[in-house]
């Protein structure tokens, strides 16, 4: 297998870019999250060969990059409730959506960060619980339990909003 050509990279960028940015926003604001995603794709381009599991490699790299960036922000004391002050929406509102995008975003923000990460990897990363367990470095059973708990919490919060599930 040879090096990555720009067309291949563009395809991956279109397919995974927004979902990776959403994943990075668990720790960072929108601008920093996109910076991390961009750096990860540039690192991917520099690889001699594409990773065997491109999706797993991308999400794991974005996770590591985001957590490193978050630690740098905390060291510099620039991190003051980034997620609360981030005004950019996580989701595009569509007419056919079954859920209100902003309510869903708020419900996700209210989850513990460990649960929120698992929900995003599962639903928008379209990964299996086993793949998620490898990324978050936890047993599959723990991931499964956290995911179930997160869905239950989300359902409870969304039910409280009129017109939601």
């Amino acid at each position: 297998m040879g090096s990555i050509d720009p067309g291949q990279l563009g395809g991956w960028f279109d397919a995974y870019g927004p979902r990776l940015a959403l994943y990075a926003r668990q720790w960072l604001d929108a601008a920093l999250a996109e910076d991390v995603v961009q750096e990860v794709f540039i690192r991917l381009m520099a690889q001699a060969e594409p990773p065997a599991n491109i999706q797993g490699w991308l999400f794991r790299s974005v996770r590591n990059g985001s957590i490193s960036q978050l630690r740098r922000q905390i060291r510099r004391k620039h991190y003051t409730r980034v997620l609360a002050t981030d005004r950019r929406n996580w989701f595009e509102s569509q007419p056919g959506d079954l859920l209100d995008a902003r309510n869903a975003q708020q419900a996700l923000l209210d989850l513990p960060v460990e649960q929120r990460e698992i929900v995003i990897l599962r639903i928008w990363g379209q990964m299996t619980l086993r793949e998620i367990a490898e990324i978050v470095e936890k047993p599959v059973s723990t991931v499964h339990h956290s995911y179930q708990s997160a869905l239950q919490s989300l359902r409870t919060k969304m039910k409280a909003v009129p017109g939601q599930i």
């Binding site: 961009q38 595009e92 056919g96 929900v119």
Partner: peptide
């Protein structure tokens, strides 16, 4: 609920795709 959440589309990135690809190729 899982299916309903999956229907939500993540917000588009504000990175210019062509510019990003140019930078990635140049860095490589």
């Amino acid at each position: 609920l899982e299916a309903a959440l999956g229907g939500l589309q993540p917000a588009a990135m504000q990175i210019e795709r062509d510019r990003f690809l140019y930078q990635a190729g140049r860095a490589s």
